[in-house]
Write a protein that binds this DNA or RNA. Structure first.
Length: 961
RNA sequence: GCCGGGUUGGCGGAAUCGGUAGACGCGACGGUCUCAAAAACCGUUGUCCGAGAGGGCGUGCGGGUUCAAGUCCCGCACCCGGCACCA
């Protein structure tokens, strides 16, 4: 796209607001804010406390912090940062103590890969990237408290990440009290300190977990790094499923609280929905089906629909289910349907072949296979409610990892069971009738009434789904054939990585292999220097090899002698590192007290910033004492727990589940243990959209630089795009180097200045919506600021031309309407419409040639959150000494918002036929009379009889004929 | 397939409760200024018919409720995001 913005100030007006003047103003004010510490937020106590009285209310807002990438920023990145800056500046002008800072999420794979390929320490490269991003962001003029900026790799930060890990390690979950408690209390309760028993209860525990092991790369891979063919995305090496000793976090213990506490959060409903679905709580029953022919064999299934038990006509085990070998028979029973045999001469062979085929498939392949496949095991089980003999199959549509890995199949009322039953010729008896007795088509999965569901003891007939569930569960429990249960889709959090660039675990192992915490005074455990950042690689097909993390090779780091209470002994350090998520799981807390050396944050600072609602500064210290058992977890109502946390958290929806779930989990553990005052970290969440961009490809499919593409209209009126005269195709998506469509903030600073860039990004559309970048439209925002400048400053002389005279009544009314509208929009985050109202006001002032202080000063204050440098400059030019950052935001005068006359619309048959100016106080009769007198209205009525007149005084008269 | 979000002028978008659809900006067109151009400023700009007054049509498509629907209800199409046989 060709850009034709104003590159330099036109010579005709030496003091016109343009890129050059903007750059000078912006630099000057940024330096001044920094020198004066304008945006330093005062803490109640500690190093960042001035001792002065704090404002009555606080406002803590945060952005999801960035990963310091080497590519630097493009214009899409600052979108959220500008928005939070506007909101923060506005809240400050409302008199609140605003905490806003930005840290860096600086551990991670890209830096490690860079280190592997260059040999440069990842810290060196990461710090350089952070410095570059700081430079780019500084020029935006963000009102951050830079004393509170940190990176997750700072030793001072790592120390507390490790400390929190140890808190989790030294805790267990008390199911009765529904909260985490210190491990010492478990020792007391169980009356044993047997490490094997104790370790098995810890919230951070070691277990064997299956991983994607890639010997060729020497690393474990995430699912998304494995191709459908079961090879590594990088390098195309084979990947093997392998069990590995791993650290895990017992997040499943918090499943209920993580779901229940969502109710009190001010989050977008879709995000809550996604978290609920991810945790996947389902209520149902576990039911035992006996296999009469095999001694002591009974198949336990999980079902969410125990009410349909009478309709179970067969069962399915996952191919990996442990009972398969025990029940599979040697010969096909008499009369076995040949569709059930898989063409094999015996069940043993059929099952073996089916299992081999399933094992050879990757998860992805198994899931892509829509066709229902399976084989009969030759065995039958007895339906506990009616004794019916039901055949048992093995099929891969049942997953070993969910529920019990076995199901009872009710084909009449489950889509998948129905598909399977159809393919295998199994009966599909109906046991639920549709509402109103309608006999819907099968499978019928909706709510209805139980039918044909009775035995000698119990009848479900006539009951709705919930009542039927309740009754059958009671019966199963009484008979000892099943129990009501709840299962979750959520799994524990795999917490170790075989990498270098992450937080080391503060864990050592004794000679028996038991883990011990490194004492607090030895934290942080810092990463040792290593000769080589690459993990050890193996022959690509050496499935038996084992990951060897880089830390494992530093022998004099791994082996230490420590005194953990029973004299100096040799220990071996944990050589895995923590995942990237660790730092982001608690960083909000560190903003509140970033320099604290004695605690992750002082409780008083934490209570002040994270406290309930705004202005919790002087809430009583012990009030919500988390140590008190009855105020924790399940005890406290969700409302009470959730009114705490960061006042506003802005970030992309891609973090809807993982980051936000992990952070909530850590926060709840810290809450249970008494380290924080509330159960939720983020009270209000807003998802920002993305800035997208057009990219252009030539006939060969190669990307051409977007800024060189010319747009024109051909003879037929269609828009065509050409590059060097050659037509190119347009596509729409991300901004990226490879797409040759990157526009950087630096480009915008140079061409227009930061204020123009800020205003443009905020005016493009609502915050939560994605939108395309259009460089040529930026000039509109520049013109707006130019007009604003011209109202205050004479472009030719540079002199301030504000006069101390009252404005005319009309302008005063427009001003106060603007103030009211802008306030409303800022409260509801309608930043784009707030700017539109400011533009309208400026256009009005331009038209009437207003120069009055009364009209201009409130305008400067309202513009300040959006274009702070320009506003500060004009504020000082109109005769003010200090920064306007703490000036009260203008208040509307209610008496000026009342209109004397309003426009009244007259509709005939629903169509607008006339508008009239009427007094705001006009009554129905008066309006009707005036409407009837309108010539247009009479013409539309056309002599017909008026049947009805609806009046909504004073805005509308609707006439029906 | 399921879940969530969306579809409004040439373009980005606005329309708080069902009550004048298209605020504001870009672009385009016309004008002022200028030797000229740029910048700036002023005006026009959903579409069709009409000289005008005015009128027809119009918020993805098809129905419905209502005096009145971008907004509410039913059905459908397409686009974006997420999840994927979860019993």
């Amino acid at each position: 796209m060709s850009t034709s913005g104003p590159h330099v100030d036109a010579p005709i007006a030496p003091h016109r607001y343009g890129a050059r003047l903007a750059a000078e103003i912006e630099q000057r004010w940024q330096d001044r804010w920094e020198a004066e510490g304008t945006f330093h937020a005062d803490n109640p106590v500690g190093e960042l406390s001035s001792g002065a009285d704090l404002p009555a209310e606080k406002y803590f807002l945060m952005d999801m912090f960035p990963y310091p990438s080497g590519a630097g920023l493009h214009v899409g990145h600052p979108l959220g940062y500008i928005a939070t800056d506007v909101i923060g500046r506005y809240q400050r002008m409302l008199g609140k103590n605003v905490l806003h800072a930005l840290g860096y999420d600086a551990f991670g794979l890209p830096a490690e890969l860079h280190a592997i390929s260059t040999g440069e320490h990842p810290r060196t490269n990461t710090l350089a990237n952070i410095a570059n991003m700081r430079r780019q962001l500084r020029r935006l003029g963000l009102a951050h408290d830079d004393r509170r900026s940190f990176a997750t790799i700072d030793p001072d930060f790592v120390r507390w990440t490790q400390w929190i890990f140890l808190q989790i390690f030294e805790s267990w979950y008390d199911e009765e009290q529904q909260r985490a408690r210190p491990i010492a209390e478990l020792v007391e309760k169980l009356g044993t300190d047997d490490p094997d028993v104790i370790d098995a209860h810890r919230l951070a525990y070691i277990s064997e977990a299956p991983v994607n092991w890639c010997p060729g790369l020497g690393t474990v891979l995430a699912n998304e790094e494995v191709t459908a063919e079961g090879r590594s995305e990088r390098g195309n090496f084979p990947v093997f499923q392998r069990s590995l000793r791993q650290w895990n976090m017992r997040i499943t213990a918090y499943a209920d609280r993580l779901i229940d506490d969502l109710d009190g959060l001010d989050w977008p409903e879709p995000v809550k929905q996604m978290q609920r679905h991810w945790i996947g709580r389902s209520h149902g029953a576990e039911v035992d089906f006996e296999v009469p022919e095999v001694e002591n064999a009974s198949i336990r299934v999980f079902t969410t629909r125990p009410d349909t038990l009478f309709g179970a006509t067969y069962m399915v085990l996952a191919p990996e289910h442990e009972l398969v070998d025990a029940i599979v028979t040697d010969a096909w029973p008499e009369g076995t349907d040949e569709r059930w045999t898989g063409g094999a001469p015996s069940p043993t062979e059929a099952v073996a072949a089916y299992r081999a085929a399933a094992a050879a498939k990757t998860d992805v392949e198994r899931q892509e296979n829509r066709e229902k496949t399976g084989v009969f095991t030759g065995a039958f089980a007895a339906n506990p409610v009616n004794g019916a003999r039901v055949p048992v199959f093995v099929a891969d549509y049942v997953l070993v990892g969910y529920g019990t890995g076995a199901i009872m199949a009710v084909p009449a009322h489950d889509e998948r069971d129905f598909a399977f039953a159809t393919a295998f010729g199994l009966p599909t008896p109906r046991v639920v009738a549709g509402p109103d007795g309608v006999d819907d088509e099968l499978p019928f999965t909706g709510a209805g009434t139980a039918v044909a569901s009775a035995n000698d003891d119990v009848s479900l007939d006539g009951l709705d789904v919930d009542a039927a569930k309740e009754r059958i569960i009671a019966w199963l429990e009484a008979e000892g054939r099943g129990t009501g249960t709840t299962t979750y889709r959520l799994r524990d959090w795999l917490f170790s990585r075989q990498r270098y660039w992450g937080e080391p675990f503060p864990i050592v192992y004794d000679e028996d292999g038991h883990p011990h915490a490194v004492p607090d005074h030895l934290l942080p455990v810092e990463l040792p220097e290593v000769p080589d950042y690459s993990p050890r690689t193996f022959e690509p097909d050496d499935a038996d090899s084992e990951p060897e993390p880089p830390l494992g090779r530093v022998q004099d780091w791994v082996h230490v002698t420590l005194d953990l209470g029973d004299g100096p002994r040799p220990y071996r350090r944990e050589t895995n590192t923590m995942p990237n998520w660790a730092g982001s799981s608690w960083y909000e807390l560190r903003y509140t007290d970033p320099t604290n050396r004695d605690a992750l944050c002082d409780p008083e600072n934490e209570r002040y910033w994270m406290g309930a609602g705004t202005g919790a500064a002087n809430s009583t210290g012990g009030g919500a004492g988390p140590g008190a058992a009855n105020s924790t977890g399940g005890g406290a109502g969700p409302g009470a727990a959730n009114s705490t946390g960061v006042d506003l958290y802005v970030g992309g929806v891609e973090h809807a589940v993982l980051h936000l779930l992990y952070a909530r989990f850590w926060h709840k553990v810290l809450f249970d243990l008494g380290h924080v005052s509330g159960a939720e970290p983020f009270h209000r969440l807003v998802n920002q959209g993305y800035i997208q961009a057009h990219a252009f490809t030539d006939a060969r499919g190669t990307y051409v630089p977007a800024e060189e593409v010319v747009e024109s209209v051909d003879e037929s009126g269609a828009t065509v795009y050409t590059h060097d005269g050659v037509p190119v195709a347009r596509e729409y998506g991300k901004m990226g180097k490879s797409l040759k469509n990157v526009v950087t903030p630096d480009d915008m600073y140079d061409e227009y200045g930061a204020d123009t860039f800020r205003v443009y990004e905020m005016s493009m559309g609502p915050l939560d919506q994605s939108r395309p970048w259009e460089t040529r439209a930026v000039v509109g925002s520049q013109r707006f600021l130019q007009r604003l400048w011209r109202l205050v400053v004479d472009e030719d002389t540079g002199e301030t031309q504000v006069v101390d005279e009252p404005t005319d009544e009309a302008t005063r009314r427009v001003l106060h309407r603007t103030i009211a509208g802008v306030r409303d929009d800022l409260e509801s985050l309608g930043l784009n419409t707030a700017i539109a109202k400011l533009i309208e006001y400026v256009n009005h002032l331009t038209k009437v040639g207003a120069r009055q202080r009364e009209a201009l000063e409130p305008l400067l204050l309202m513009v300040a959150p959006f274009a702070p440098h320009l506003a500060e400059e004009l504020w000082s030019r109109t005769g003010h000494d200090g920064s306007l950052a703490f000036e009260p935001f203008p208040q509307p005068d209610p008496s000026l918002l009342v209109e004397d006359t309003v426009t009244c619309v007259v509709q005939v048959q629903g169509k607008v036929r006339s508008t009239m100016q009427v007094p705001a106080s006009a009554d129905d009769a008066e309006l009707t009379e005036r409407a009837m007198a309108e010539a247009n209205v009479q013409r539309a009525i056309d002599g017909r009889e008026v049947r009805k007149v609806i009046v909504r005084a004073p805005k509308l008269v609707s006439i029906v004929v």
